[in-house]
Design a protein around this nucleic acid. Structure first.
Length: 220
DNA sequence: CAGTTGATTCGCT
DNA sequence: GCGAATCAACTGG
């Protein structure tokens, strides 16, 4: 069962996205990624929720305090993968966007599996299908994206990672925006900007916990 | 169905 | 040492 998964052969995807696409402004790239597909390790996911991070100028971005060994890839050319580890157990995947050195990125938050379902089911055994790609860490797990894949170039024609434009673009009226989720600097101006984008009416995008304080005091 | 809490490693100060 | 771009399990209704 080493059959190759070719999403394009199933009519699931449009043209492969090149570096010039990701090099645009991150706030333009992020909504444009909705409906696009990502293919890696035999599974194809159609993106339904993403979140933009505006590099050095963004207090919520990992790049805010300048380059570190971890975030180095963010400061490189667009179209590369930035994968980070969080909460002691989860991997999350971003695509670097914008101009070279800008260090912007789009976090892949949710989607739906549209190809390689057998492999995805195997990879996510015991988990309800709806939860396979609901949330950034689940999405990364289903696509088998971990720290090893950080820096991977998504713009190599024959590369292992592929972004494809949707066959039919998501109508603008179905794209909704909102504040970010779970970002530490939520109290600042950054929270006021709608940097999260999702496709309305998608089961894969559930009402995420609104930016709620982690702990509550017993007094008042 | 909705809300709460524990888990558990890495990166940076 | 502390906090984190989260998830899964468990609770009560």
């Amino acid at each position: 069962m080493a059959r190759e998964h070719d999403p394009t052969a199933q009519g699931l995807t449009g043209p492969r996205l090149g570096r010039d696409f990701f090099a645009e402004d991150v706030l333009d790239v992020a909504p444009a990624l909705l409906g696009c597909t990502v293919t890696h390790a035999g599974v194809t996911v159609r993106l339904t929720e993403v979140e933009a991070y505006a590099g050095l100028a963004d207090p919520g971005s990992h790049a805010f305090r300048g380059p570190t060994p971890r975030t180095e890839v963010m400061f490189g050319p667009a179209g590369h993968l930035y994968v980070y580890f969080t909460y002691g157990m989860h991997w999350c995947a971003n695509v670097v966007c914008g101009s070279d050195g800008e260090a912007s990125a789009v976090l892949l938050r949710a989607g739906e599996v549209v190809g390689g379902e057998d492999l995805a089911a195997q990879r996510r055994a015991g988990i309800p299908r709806r939860d396979w790609t609901r949330g950034p860490a689940r999405l990364a797990t289903t696509l088998a994206l971990r720290g090893d894949q950080s820096g991977l170039d998504a713009c190599m024609p024959q590369g292992p990672l592929a972004f494809h434009a949707p066959v039919e673009r998501v109508p603008a009226r179905r794209i909704r925006t909102g504040p970010r989720v779970g970002v530490a600097g939520a109290g600042g101006d950054a929270a006021a900007y709608p940097w999260r984008f999702w496709v309305d009416g998608e089961p894969s995008v559930s009402v995420y916990r609104p930016a709620k304080p982690r702990a509550r005091r017993s007094d008042t």
